[in-house]
Design a protein around this nucleic acid. Structure first.
Lengths: 144, 144
DNA sequence: GTGCGTGCAAATTCTTTGCAATGCA
DNA sequence: TGCATTGCAAAGAATTTGCACGCAC
């Protein structure tokens, strides 16, 4: 389960980062998003709550949030700079190819795959980046 | 095993695409790369063989090669538009976190993971994008 | 009060597009 | 020869940076 807005705010405090109106708006925008969001999307959404918000600040805030682990970057075939609220644990994202909604799953047992890949390639695998896509339940249901 | 330059050229012909000096240079540059390459890197490398090559052409050619399946896009934490010669079969890339070299592995059994993810999230998973990183044998050996 | 954080505007970087000229099939 | 492909230059989009001011702590 992704961190909610309060938890992210808390994480900011823990790091000694200040909570400004702008950051609050950005956090709310991202935490309330049902799918991954690009900096521009965050800008639009957060601006509703904080009209004097600047795009620069959005970039800086997303960067900061991502550094403290509150957000996670996701990559897709098209968009390459999108963010998603990160879960507390190591996890992967599942993106709906229809509506773009994103969920996380943490129950990943990649051990066997990692071992197999290591054996086949000779590399010493230390990290894996996995992203799944498919249809979310809602889209699957409404799809004929 | 990735396609070599000749195979890519062949793939071009099959699609009715013309083989120009520029495309030849781009193909050679990508096929000869030991790691993933960005459009700019391709431009630099290919320019050595074809000085009149334009950057525009590099973008268009990479796009075309990617469309016919000769190249594969890879994403990293930092760079987001990099290409790698694609193998003939479904495969994944393993990137060395030290030297950036890339290999493919095709022996991927993601079935169990995909099923588990589907059960946990309720999504109907149709695709997976996996990228591993670690140390290649050479870097692991020279690392103290 | 002290800086961290901000907005603005300009600079930079990356990518795409229009169009006439070129050269592959 | 015909038409896909190219290069150039300019447009466009996305992101970063410099700097003085304002506000959270």
């Amino acid at each position: 389960m992704p961190l909610d807005a309060e938890q992210i705010v808390h994480a900011l405090n823990d790091r000694g980062l200040r909570l400004t109106r702008q950051r609050r708006a950005v956090v709310d925008a991202v935490a309330g998003a049902s799918s991954s969001v690009s900096p521009l999307q965050v800008f639009d959404a957060a601006r509703a709550a904080c009209p004097e918000l600047g795009l620069t600040t959005v970039y800086r805030t997303l960067e900061a949030l991502s550094e403290i682990g509150a957000l996670r970057r996701v990559h897709g075939p098209d968009h390459c700079e999108a963010f998603v609220p990160a879960g507390a644990a190591h996890g992967h994202t599942v993106v709906c190819s229809r509506c773009g909604s994103v969920v996380e799953f943490t129950d990943c047992d990649m051990h066997a795959v990692v071992v197999a890949a290591g054996e086949q390639t000779g590399y010493r695998i230390t990290e894996h980046f996995l992203q799944l896509s498919g249809e979310c339940p809602a889209c699957a249901a409404e799809g004929t």
